[in-house]
Write a protein that binds this DNA or RNA. Structure first.
Length: 428
RNA sequence: GGAAAGGUAUCGAAGUGGUCAUAACGAGCCGCACUCGAAAUGCGGUUGCCGAGUUCUCGGCACAUGGGUUCAAAUCCCAUCCUUUCCGCCA
């Protein structure tokens, strides 16, 4: 949610920044509706003040035995007038809210405008592996090794689902355990949230109302606001834990991570170009979230990027870090860096982690505040999130980057303690 | 799923149509006094949102949420949500 006061003061600047995101903001409409709203509120409050004044006098008059019937009649009229004006003010307030609710976050000033083509690679780690044998893609390798059962996954649930089995399940679980153990070392609190969330969580995270068709809905009430949905990322849960609360300033920054599956419709994506588990309806992810003091959210962002990158480095994978152009950042985010892993069979880098700073955008939507000791005022916190990491891209990258001539796959050293010391996955 | 009780500030809790909503009473927290210091004690302070003029003041709103009755609702009525206890069912 954008700050209307800030828009009022910096209309041109913010309009220009949002243009970089490809969003054409109509601030004149919101501001004029808001002016109407404030005027209506002024009128209502004036009448209410009068009503309150007279109401306070009634018991005194009664005590003195003076007649009050005439006053009752005029108060009834006043009440009717107030009701009409109040409804008007309420409608205008809702209108301002609705207009603001669909506006994306303001991108940081150092971001380039435009979409993916303007993303900047800011770091390249390792190098593309060379194979002196015919390279295979991860779907073929996994199928031959019997560690991912795509066919039976489809049988159970349709396209976009698969079954991890045997060493595949062990490798997946080892990855998650490795991530978890690293985050625990860094002092992040481990959270296992519900996988079904209420509408308010989607709104608070900034995914609703615009993108509410991209998640799986449960229940069958016609009103979506009464239903729950399967979380598309643990961020949606973590970022709403302190909604409507005032956090002690000295508790900031608060650092969390959660493991959950992520459930996404992924409607309209090109399955044929993204074979195997590159894009599924359910994938596992460990997600990091920080609640930060506004003055220190930049440092928190760097920390999250470094944490995600260090996981990739410890796995020994070749990857790069990209700073996203404004138009490639999601609506809620002011800045995003992606960590992208090399998928040899596709010849491209695929996102395994996305680290973002929402600034106060999410906190404004779900009312998450802290009391500032300097000013004594309550203010919105900054929320940041980052994958740490999603396995569904890391898994194929491991399979492909660490494949051997005989069709086996070498297990990264850091994962071996979580796989009972197993160093290679081969046909049984 | 059935029954009962309940939801008021940071916490406990009083208030059962108006003259007790910053909201009694108790605790916490902050400041001051007493003290060499601390404890104890005493005194004072301690909600958020919105609007108007803007270092302060004035006004409005908020007693789970949304409606209703009334000149007037924390209080009466309806609906919804949540909590606790008991019963039933159960991985």
């Amino acid at each position: 949610m954008l700050d209307l006061r800030r828009i009022q003061e910096n209309k041109e600047k913010i309009t220009e920044l949002l243009k970089r995101k490809g969003y054409d903001a109509d601030f004149d409409t919101v501001l004029s509706v808001d002016a109407e709203r404030r005027k209506a509120i002024g009128e209502v409050e004036k009448l209410k003040a009068e009503k309150n004044k007279v109401s306070a006098e009634i018991p005194l008059l009664k005590k003195q035995g003076k007649p009050v019937d005439g006053i009752f009649a005029s108060m009834r009229d006043l009440g009717d007038k107030i009701a009409v004006l109040e409804q008007k003010a309420k409608d205008l307030d809702q209108k301002v809210f609705d207009l603001l609710a669909v506006m994306p976050n303001i991108p940081d000033e150092d971001l380039l405008g435009g979409e993916k083509e303007n993303n900047q690679v800011i770091k390249l780690v390792g190098e593309q592996p060379k194979f002196d044998f015919p390279m295979q893609n991860h779907v073929d390798i996994c199928t031959k090794l019997g560690i991912i059962d795509y066919a039976r996954g489809v049988k159970l649930s349709g396209g976009g689902f698969w079954i991890y089995r045997g060493d595949g399940a062990k490798l997946e679980w080892a990855l998650l355990n490795f991530f978890i153990s690293e985050h625990l070392k860094d002092g992040y609190e481990f959270i296992l949230p519900p996988h079904q969330l209420g509408y308010n969580c989607g709104f608070g995270a900034g995914q609703f109302p615009k993108f509410s068709d991209e998640v799986y809905w449960l229940d069958c009430d016609e009103d979506r606001k009464k239903n729950r949905f399967m979380l598309p990322t643990a961020e949606t849960a973590l970022v709403n834990m302190y909604a409507n609360e005032i956090i002690d300033e000295n508790k900031l920054p608060m650092k969390f991570f959660a493991y959950t599956p992520c459930y996404r419709k992924e409607a309209g994506s090109y399955r044929s170009e993204e074979r195997g588990m590159i894009r599924g309806h359910q994938f596992n992810k460990v997600e990091m979230v920080q609640y930060a003091h506004p003055e220190h959210s930049g440092e928190a962002f760097t920390e999250l990027v470094n944490k995600a990158a260090s996981l990739m480095e410890k796995l020994g994978l070749h990857f790069r870090i990209s700073k996203l152009a404004a138009g490639d950042c999601s609506a809620s985010m002011a800045r995003t860096y992606d960590i992208e892993v090399w998928i040899p069979s596709m010849g491209i880098y695929k996102e395994v982690a996305s680290i973002s700073n929402a600034n106060d955008y999410q906190a404004r939507r779900n009312n998450t505040k802290y009391r500032d000791s300097k000013t004594g005022k309550v203010q919105f916190v900054h929320t940041l999130n980052g994958s740490g990491l999603a396995t569904s891209r890391v898994f194929p990258a491991i399979i492909e980057q660490f494949q051997n001539a005989d069709g086996s796959v070498t297990v990264p050293e850091v994962l071996r303690p979580f796989m009972g010391g197993q160093s290679v996955i081969k046909v049984k």
